[in-house]
């Protein structure tokens, strides 16, 4: 366990030294929330747009940070042979994956701390009394998307990884019920969407923060993703 915290500290230090990347991670969700909160153009179904947007953008932030940012950074670490070098130390693959997931969780806490006041300023009020469940959703979402990001980063060449991370991000963003309601999607797409981790996370967050919609189904779907994705990541991860 000690090595996990040693690695976590190193990852956070490195992140702090890459300020531009951190800034981008924070800026994109903020811009999305500020823009779509002010311009009511998204098909949000029966839900008030700001109630739909705040949990959805938190889900987007989690997906961006834990999948794309982590996945691309890890891909570069592979090309710089950083992973290979770490592979010669007592740090295990599992410990590295846990340290990386904890790192993105810290970043997400900062993102959420920035996003919530913007949501409040735009009139959003959490109606649910289950904030603890929202925290569970964030943890499960982090584990899921970090797992997905690391599966790609751990098994693809750096250039292919970069394209794959962005491609998957786009698919999950559009089909994943984060900024476009599942109800607005055509029948087959809506069915696919329900099984996606992005939909599950967004729905889980909406239910716990807004106090409406389904809770159990998305929670179950997300839990399965949160167990399977990091496990596959740890198994498939290659040091070089």
């Amino acid at each position: 366990m000690k090595r996990v915290f040693v690695q976590l500290r190193a990852e956070l230090l490195l992140l702090a030294r890459n300020g531009e990347q951190l800034l981008l991670t924070l800026v994109i969700p903020v811009v999305l929330l500020a823009f779509f909160g002010a311009v009511d153009v998204l098909p949000t179904g029966d839900i008030d747009s700001i109630d739909f947007l705040v949990p959805g953008i938190i889900a987007v932030a989690i997906m961006s940070t834990s999948m794309v940012s982590l996945g691309i950074a890890t891909g570069f670490e592979r090309s710089y042979q950083v992973l290979k070098r770490l592979g010669a130390t007592p740090l295990t693959r599992g410990e590295l994956v846990v340290a990386k997931i904890l790192t993105v969780f810290v970043v997400e806490l900062v993102q959420i701390a920035v996003l919530l006041p913007i949501g409040f300023a735009q009139g959003w009020r959490p109606a649910g009394s289950t904030v603890a469940l929202a925290i569970v959703a964030v943890l499960l979402g982090t584990a899921t998307f970090a797992g997905l990001g690391l599966i790609l980063a751990g098994s693809l060449r750096a250039e292919i990884n970069l394209a794959a991370q962005n491609g998957l991000y786009l698919v999950l963003l559009l089909l994943g019920g984060m900024i476009i309601s599942q109800d607005s999607l055509p029948g087959p797409m809506a069915s696919i969407s329900a099984a996606l981790p992005s939909s599950a996370l967004a729905e889980f967050l909406r239910s716990s923060l807004n106090g409406d919609g389904q809770l159990l189904a998305p929670a179950l779907v997300l839990t399965v993703w949160a167990i399977v994705a990091p496990l596959i990541a740890a198994r498939r991860f290659r040091w070089s």
């Binding site: 230090l13 490195l14 670490e77 710089y80 042979q81 950083v82 290979k84 070098r85 007592p90």
Partner: peptide, 26 residues
């Protein structure tokens, strides 16, 4: 192990990376 090249993140500082590895080996 000393690799033929690379092995360190370009923005990592000498002191930080050596401290990191010392801590990993414990």
């Amino acid at each position: 192990v000393m690799l033929q090249g690379g092995g360190v993140y370009p923005s990592a500082r000498v002191k930080d990376v050596v401290s990191h590895f010392c801590a990993l080996y414990g």
